[in-house]
Structures are given as C-alpha cells and as structure tokens.
Simulated assay, not measured.
Amino acid sequence: MPNSSDATGASAPPPAAVKKTSELKARILSSLVLGPAVLALVWLGGWPFRLLLAAAALIAMREWVVIVGGPARRPAVLPLALAAVAVSLAAAVAAGPLAGAGVAVVLAAAVGWSAAGCDRGWMAAGLPYVAFGAVGLDWLRESPQGGLGLLLFVMLAVWATDIGAYAAGRTIGGPKLAPRLSPKKTWAGLLGGVAASALTGALVALAVGAARPGVAALTGGVLAVVAQAGDLFESAVKRRYGVKDSGTLIPGHGGLLDRIDGLLTAAAALALFHAAAGERIAWW
C-alpha cells in the first residue's frame, strides 16, 4: 500500500505543516524587505512619510471596499471611496487633523450612498476607520513635541502587543477572548499584549527622554487594548462577509489592512489623548 514514508522510512510532513512552514518563510522575508523601508520613511518624516501614509490609506480603503462590496460592487464604489480618503488626508495636511476627520465623516455619507446593493452603513464606516488612523499617524509624526518618538511609541506598542499576545496565548492558552470573531485570541493573550506594550512604552519613553515613563507605560497598556479592539473590529467585518484575509498584497501576511488594523485605532486614540491632555499631563 502507498504511504507517506520516503525510502528511509521517515514520514513526510503533512501538507498543513508544509503550508505553515512556507507561510512563515514568506512572512519573515516580506518583513525583512518591507520593515527597513517603512522605518526609513518614518525616520525621514515630512512628505516622504506622508506619501507612504497616503499609499497605505488608499490600499487599505480599497481592501475595505472589496471586503464589504465584493467584486460585483467594487467598480461603482471604489473611485469615490479612494477620492474620499485622498481628500480627507489633504484636508488634514492643509487645515489640521480636525478638518481631516471632519471631511472624512462628511464624505463617509457619500461613500455609503454610492454603495447601492451593499451594506451602506458598513461601507461608509470604512472611511473614518482608515482616515482617522492615517490622520492620527500624520499628526503624531509632525508633532513638534517629539513627533518621531511619538510615532515610534505607537508603532512599537502595537507590535509589542501582537508579539506579547501571541506568546502568552500560545504558552498559557485558556479562555477565548472573542471566539465568534477571532477563535485564536485568548484572555491570556490580551493580558500578555498589555504587559508587553506597557513595557515597550516605558522603554521607548526612557530612550527618547520623555518626562514621565510611568504614564507612558500606562498609555502603552491602554493602547494594547485599543489595538486589539481594532483587530477584532476588522475580524468581525471579515467574518460577516466570509473573507479570510483583506487581500494578498503582503506574502504570508494577507492584505495591508490585516497588518495595520490595530495600528489605525491605536494611532487615532493616542493622537486624541495627546492632543487633549498631553500638555496638561506633560508626559512626553
């Protein structure tokens, strides 16, 4: 009888294991290629970073339209949705973040109206979801109060959340966080992500000479929860429409929106916090 053993008697790895190994290699390779380029533009700031941000926002919005609208409705909604993202970011650059956010809210109604035959509310929700995060990232980077440090703070906090959640979830396991939305996430993973983000926030604050590393640690912990909420929000939308990944742009990772869902919500939250209370608390 045929079997899965080779000439030496060793069993061949199951197809699932081979697929996971291939996906892991693709993830590592894409991270090694994209990571340094993104960090270089983050370091430069200004228009190089804004062009990166605009490209990312346009790609993310396109993926959202594909998820909610599907192939049949994509041509009708996509041009307006992409134009709305571009106009929102332009308004933020020209007149400030509040203007950009306001334009996004107004244009979201137009995007929803154009989505005949789709869930108009969900289609409209994609614009503020993407635009608020992009505007927040731009405002943080351009902040005169250590903008580069603030941007690195939120980026590293979100990355630490993902790593800490994965490590704690795999090691500890336990009750699921939201099994209907994301079956692999656990409460232990959430707590691990909070701890990792808090520690990372404190370390970044110390590295850039921030005034209150303790407040930075607390802020990092809160951002971990916000980032996980953003991740679950995108998972809920994908599950609603029967989509596994938001796209295939990044080998081994899926779509861009799959990679930045938590960053979008965390950046918007940090920008709001820093704008409202940053000077009074004097934490940065």
Rank of each mutant, 00 (worst) to 15 (best):
A198Y: 11
K20R: 12
V226P: 09
A86S: 05
A134V: 06
Y129V: 00
P79E: 02
G193Y: 05
L181V: 10
T186G: 10
G133V: 09
S143L: 15
H253W: 11
A76G: 10
A134W: 11
L177I: 12
A134F: 10
V215C: 14
G230T: 02
A125P: 15
P71H: 10
A282I: 03
D258P: 05
L181S: 04
G278Y: 08
G102C: 06
G164Y: 02
I28W: 15
A275W: 07
P48Q: 11
R239L: 12
G149N: 10
C118V: 04
L32Y: 14
G117V: 01
G254R: 00
V237W: 02
A72H: 10
T186M: 07
R74Q: 11
E279G: 15
G147L: 15
P15K: 04
L223M: 03
G221V: 01
G221P: 11
R50N: 15
G173M: 08
T200I: 03
A37K: 03
L199T: 14
G214S: 05
V222A: 11
Q145P: 09
G46N: 13
A165S: 14
I67E: 07
G173S: 07
G254W: 06
V38A: 07
A277L: 14
I172N: 01
A10C: 05
G173Y: 03
G255Q: 00
A268S: 14
L191R: 13
I28L: 12
A157M: 02
F233A: 13
I67F: 05
I281D: 14
G147P: 01
G117Y: 03
V18E: 12
L181E: 00
M1N: 12
V105R: 15
R280C: 11
R141P: 01
A7K: 04
A165C: 05
E23M: 09
G102P: 00
G69T: 01
G70T: 02
L58A: 10
E234V: 11
P179W: 04
I67L: 02
G189F: 02
L29A: 13
G189S: 05
A40K: 04
L257S: 03
P183K: 01
W43C: 14
L107V: 06
T21A: 15
V208C: 04
L181F: 13
A134R: 09
L52I: 03
V68C: 01
A91W: 06
A94Q: 08
G173E: 04
K176E: 09
A17F: 06
L218K: 15
A131K: 08
A108D: 06
R62F: 15
V103R: 08
K184V: 11
A115F: 00
R120H: 04
V66H: 06
L107N: 03
K19I: 12
L44Q: 05
R180Q: 12
P75H: 01
I260R: 00
R259A: 14
E279R: 15
P144I: 09
P179V: 02
G136D: 01
P36Y: 01
V225C: 06
A109S: 13
A17K: 12
P251C: 05
I28C: 11
R259L: 14
G117Q: 04
A83L: 08
D231P: 08
